[in-house]
């Protein structure tokens, strides 16, 4: 039955071009995000990277990523993707037990890597189009579809439902730490987009949309107009 339903609503083809009717508002929020990054996120990430030894940072990142696995598995199931469901469940089971609550990554050593997904992708699999491009203050780039997805992922997070009060804060703290670690690790690339581009808003939008479409497997067919042929004109 589920398979029939899924077959009925095949993922839509990639949307050609740009759909950015809220550009003015988005640009204002982008300016805010740049200020936030410059004043708070970037300096905090530098301190985070300098103060914590690499193994501790890795442990925190592992812990945060492990807590995302139940959500990944649930979305895999909703997408009718048994492989994705099983991979994430197996990884969660191994790393939570042998990996001591997810601090270590024995599953990765066995080649069982996280098959990352989210409810935005589930909506895509169900046939929802991307919708307009959005940039949110504090959260960064998204689309209408992915914003709904993020909201659902946060509200329906299986981990949030199970964990009691103190553990919940550890989970949140680990997520923040993990994000700071990423900001520090990819610092030079992120800096070049945010601070060296002639139009950092346009670059961010392009990078986000292209990468997101790639994650959803929409560029594989080579039908998107992202595939510029310089010999055509």
């Amino acid at each position: 039955m589920a398979a029939v339903l899924l077959a009925a609503c095949a993922p839509p083809p990639p949307q050609p071009g740009l759909n950015d009717p809220f550009e003015q508002t988005n640009r204002a929020f982008h300016g805010f995000n740049r200020g936030l990054d410059r004043a708070l996120v970037r300096p905090s990430s530098k301190i985070y990277g300098a103060v914590l030894p690499q193994p501790v940072q890795t442990g925190i990142a592992n812990f945060a990523s492990n807590l995302s696995l139940p959500g990944d598995a649930a979305n895999g199931a909703l997408q009718g993707n048994p492989e994705r469901f099983v991979t994430n469940v197996l990884r969660f089971a191994l790393n939570t037990t042998v990996g001591i609550g997810g601090l270590f990554d024995p599953a990765g050593a066995l080649g069982i890597h996280r098959d990352k997904t989210d409810f935005g992708e589930t909506l895509h699999v169900w046939g929802a189009g991307e919708g307009a491009y959005l940039e949110f203050p504090g959260l960064g780039p998204s689309t209408v579809r992915d914003a709904v997805g993020t909201a659902v992922d946060i509200a329906a997070n299986p981990v949030g439902m199970v964990l009691a009060s103190p553990e919940k804060y550890y989970a949140t703290a680990a997520k923040v730490g993990s994000k700071l670690g990423d900001r520090n690790r990819y610092s030079s690339t992120i800096d070049s987009v945010l601070y060296d581009s002639a139009d950092s808003y346009a670059q961010t939008r392009l990078l986000y949309l292209q990468n997101r479409r790639f994650e959803l497997g929409q560029t594989d067919a080579g039908t998107g107009d992202d595939f510029i042929d310089p010999y055509a004109d």
């Binding site: 392009l206 990078l207 292209q210 997101r212 790639f214 560029t219 992202d226 510029i228 310089p230």
Partner: peptide
């Protein structure tokens, strides 16, 4: 690179 294409960028 991961779907992000140099020419467009």
């Amino acid at each position: 690179i991961e779907g992000v294409n140099m020419l467009a960028s």
